[in-house]
Design a protein around this nucleic acid. Sequence first.
DNA 1: CGGCATCCCGTACGATACTG
DNA 2: CAGTATCGTACGGGATGCCG
Lengths: 136, 136
Amino acid sequence: MTTRGSRATGRGVRGDLFDPLCPTRQLLDRIGTKWTSMAVKTLADAAPDEVRFAELRRRMPGVSQKMLSVTLRSLTRDGLVSRRVEPTVPPRVFYRLTGLGLSLETVLAGLRTWAEEHMAEIDHAHQAADQEVDEG
Amino acid sequence: MTTRGSRATGRGVRGDLFDPLCPTRQLLDRIGTKWTSMAVKTLADAAPDEVRFAELRRRMPGVSQKMLSVTLRSLTRDGLVSRRVEPTVPPRVFYRLTGLGLSLETVLAGLRTWAEEHMAEIDHAHQAADQEVDEG
DNA sequence: CGGCATCCCGTACGATACTG
DNA sequence: CAGTATCGTACGGGATGCCG
């Protein structure tokens, strides 16, 4: 993703949609990271129940412990996920989507629906274009 | 972004939503790149008219010539944008969203709306969390 | 004018190992 | 069990310069 660190070349022109701090860009920077959307969906599927870290990990095949931790910390800091620690030994930590998180999930659901309906077309076009290059 | 090169650890478990080739991940890998969503929106704003490369560049403050070129090539290969070259000297190249591209734009519009309505809450939560760290 | 090649840097992400 | 620290790699993406 990488938006930070670039800084203005043309700022605030034509409405703030093109500002580097544009909310849409900020949102994309978040949901674009590899495990965020899957974590949100997994938590949404379980809602309103809480899910333990290890359980979440099992429901997200391929995610490493580190990346799940990083992803959840980020989501928690953004107020999209709530975190509850049971101070036992060993500790048990539970996660759950907040209202804001649930609201985001509906938007992600829209993305998913579109992707399922149209990504095949994109793949097809992509492969066709590659063919032309080979033949060209 | 970076999805390529990881490869399966747990494949096809619990429905293909968790497959590394999951259409949603593929879609996010595309719209997540820095200039894609802005390019789609700018072309959508102009639709059904075509837009020349230089004009597009002017309407996307901050984009470098290289990145605009890369972004448009990617969109074109994916069938989201059509490209027309006028073989004059110097050449003139026109871009326009395809039907598929326009359909994607409606989804992006949903993202934008949510972002404009809720990113402030996320920012707020994020800053509040950072404060706690400083004080803690 | 449009676009590709080259160079360089920051960072997202993975593997591994260590703490409470 | 949950989380952090460290290290290495791959890639997005900016700056610059050259071609048709």
